[in-house]
Amino acid sequence: MEDARRQEFRTALRQTKNLPTLPGIVAKLSRMAEDPDTTTEQMGKVISQDYILAAKLLKLVNSAFYGFPQRISSISSAIILLGFNVVKSLIISASIFEVMEDQDVELWQHSLGCAVACNVIASRLGVKDPEEVSTAGLIHDIGKMAIKMELPEEYGMINRLMQERGVSMRQAELEVLGLDHAEAGGWLAKGWNLPAKLIEPVTCHHDPRKAHDAQLTSSIIHFGDIMIRALGYGHAGDNKVPMLSKRAWEFLNFSPEDIDEVLELVEEKLWDVKGFSLEVKADDSTHAGD
């Protein structure tokens, strides 16, 4: 893959402006914003279940305007610093899918599931601030949406390649673009001025060896991603459980009991999230399948 083409893709992806999300989420948040009793924290909780709005929120709070460049790495902190009016503005200006495809919902579910898994794994490992890890876990696949929106032709080719040859999405991305969604997501995060502790895990979630300071977080997301795919919750583009990174496994150092307990907890927490999913899907009246 020539460098020139890669540069082209990189430029296109870094300029990603339109990242739509599920109409149901925006509808719910709009209702909440109109209700005088809604607190900023309550809106934050809903936003932390949508990877697109969460990423936009983080981009906003880390922008030069607010004065905290590359500093804010959790959604609850972003909410505290931005305040109700700004969060409301974000919702008003949010774009939604005109026509929603199954893939979009499935990717949303996968992202949410990953956030849940990362929270459980991080807590089990005694990480001081599991929310930061689950935030990274939430947005880890944002590169996929960027590719879909900015490079639709290539996105089509990637999907066709997966169908024809049964390869993983990542493999198809590398063949068609010379880069994968992890790298793309990392560029986006960097362009948005997100802190390094969010950029690294996004870039390195398939290969935690590449990380410098965020090796543990990257490993957690790596395994969280695997776990959610294994559970078949949501759909990450292809249905295969990817190879487990040796480095990641070294960091996690999980025993069979650890796996059992984490699995148990993750399944339990996914149930809480399933109710929300139903609510959000029911809210949407633009689903292509109907």
Partner: peptide
């Protein structure tokens, strides 16, 4: 940061 914390709390 402190300015924003105060403003946003009072705003709410």
């Amino acid at each position: 940061m402190v300015a924003r914390v105060i403003v946003n709390v009072i705003d709410q």
